[in-house]
Design a protein around this nucleic acid. Sequence first.
DNA 1: CAAAAATGAATGATCGTTCATTCATTACGC
DNA 2: GCGTAATGAATGAACGATCATTCATTTTTG
Lengths: 199, 199
Amino acid sequence: MARDDKRELLLQATLELVAKQGFHGAPCAAIAEQAGVATGTIYRYFENKDVLIVALYAELESRITTRLMEGYVADRPICDRFMHLAMGVLDYFITHPLEFKYIEQFHNSPYGTDFRRDKLLGNTESSDSSCKCDIYKRLFTEGVELQVIKDLPMPVLFDLAFGPVVSVARNHILGFIQLDDLLIQQIARACWDSLKRHE
Amino acid sequence: MARDDKRELLLQATLELVAKQGFHGAPCAAIAEQAGVATGTIYRYFENKDVLIVALYAELESRITTRLMEGYVADRPICDRFMHLAMGVLDYFITHPLEFKYIEQFHNSPYGTDFRRDKLLGNTESSDSSCKCDIYKRLFTEGVELQVIKDLPMPVLFDLAFGPVVSVARNHILGFIQLDDLLIQQIARACWDSLKRHE
DNA sequence: CAAAAATGAATGATCGTTCATTCATTACGC
DNA sequence: GCGTAATGAATGAACGATCATTCATTTTTG
């Protein structure tokens, strides 16, 4: 078996176990078993468990960003671009429930807190302009300047746009609601309503 | 020392440790030390640690509901009542950061998942009409009937209203933004914009 | 066959929980 | 009122279970 294959198997096993049972249900022994390797093998591909956890998170972020950039046309109207991004994120989450659950678990754990802190402080690699946050940030900045988006602090605009999207995705995946294309569009539109400046 | 005092000390110690360091940072030994009692004493007031965790959550929910009902006038316009509730929740969260953090930790843990599942299934005590959810549910139902709120599934309306509120509260408490009365009002208004039916 | 990869039993640390013991308080006998 | 017995709250050392990590050994590869 090629070297990268086993690394991939370990990442996939971690994704499934953490998404389905949380970090408590994903000890190293279980991850190894799910991947079909021995416990010790984990340490040939990752320095320790924390490195594995963070590496998987980075991989998932990268996948979403790649998907979001597909079909994104930078010179469309602000509203159209926002709808594309909001519906894209929502669609990605509900078609990849395991990835969504993992990301949620990660954010609400010591891993996520440390990760955020690191991003705020020594943000040396923020020159990566393909970051999902940057796409939104530029869109919102432009919208505020053109006076089509409310003049609120950038993090607040993020919360207005993402807060409902994440909540709705969670409720869909847990089976409390059933999202379809029409509903997704209505939700993205409602988020836009909260961002849009009053005429 | 009166019996209830030690129970209260244990609840307070659990609140502080879990809020500040997560469940990982709140072993029974640490909770007891913070409360100024011995480890074993916990088991005189609570059957086990899970019971303690859930009891604290129920206590916090009760406190918020009590606060929210203060000054709530049922025959005001839909918009006014929504603004009162949204601003009230946001204000409570940012003035009680430990309680907010604990509730977030609880929701994103096996405890929270089980709690939700129990509420969905054997919901025998749902006759408690003072439940926070019920206040909102009745407000939204009335709003949809009067055609001032969008005709979307009830859980989606919850997500549109609560998603941004929770996100914003978290970012304020983590120090990423600084909320004041004006900003709180603007955010509640933005949430209302996402709920409001288009003319 | 030599080097690299994989193995999984062993290790040490940490956790929730238990329980024999201590000790302050209360109730009782005289 | 005083000495003694009974009570049960409080204690914290000890236990068993679980975890991440290590490493001597075996297996695979080239």
